[in-house]
Amino acid sequence: MKKGSRPASLKDVPFHYCPGCTHGIAHRLVTEVIDELDIRGKTIGIAPVGCSVFTMDYFDFDMIQGSHGRGPAVATGLKRALPDRVVFTYQGDGDLAAIGTGEFVHAAVRGEKITCIFINNAVYGMTGGQMAPTTLVGQMTKTTPFGRDKDINGFPIKVCEMLAPLEGSAYLARVAVHNPKSIIKAKKAIRRAFEVQMQGLGFSLIEILSTCPTNWGLSPVKAVQWLEENMVPYFPLGEYKTPAGVI
């Protein structure tokens, strides 16, 4: 029995991510689930704009690179034309929850049978550490050098809570990848999301709390602690909606 072996759906190339960035863990979990469900040959992924645009080079199945924030619209067009395939987007918090707000909300409204993997690390990574819609109040970023000011920037967006009341959303969960226990739970939720899509039950989204040590200005070890102490209290973990209803 082997632990830590590379999923077949994940290409054997080094990630370009910074040391300790948990995108790598999320990539591994998604591809493990795709392997376990044996859906690699009928899965199409949509890469965002941001650090994880390079998922297109890592995921070893058909991939599409779409414009910033529009992944769920691209996924809609694709899935409507190929309803028997498995279609998912991989998006960061800037991509999904700022510029792409219209697209993911309305994909959920329509109950699109797609899955959004939503990486929430409370900061813009690729562009160099600016405020994200999920940046915590008081959190310092390059564009909130004195901390996010609620009077100027408002409050962090809670995506799962927002989508739960919509009839079209079928499975919503917020998970984290900052410790082994959370990683195991995260994988279960990702698997459930793909299953919900395959069963045709509606829209699914997994919000993954992640770290960005570089732009948080913390060591990777400090970053996972910061996530636990600051992000988890504001973004509570758990399932927010299952096909049985709002939790």
Binding site: G4, S5, Y17, T22, I25, R28, I183
Partner: peptide, 19 residues
Amino acid sequence: TGCGLCALMCPDMVIEVER
């Protein structure tokens, strides 16, 4: 002990634990 937590936590798939 072969628990594999190190492999689970590694973001870069560096570690493999085989029992």
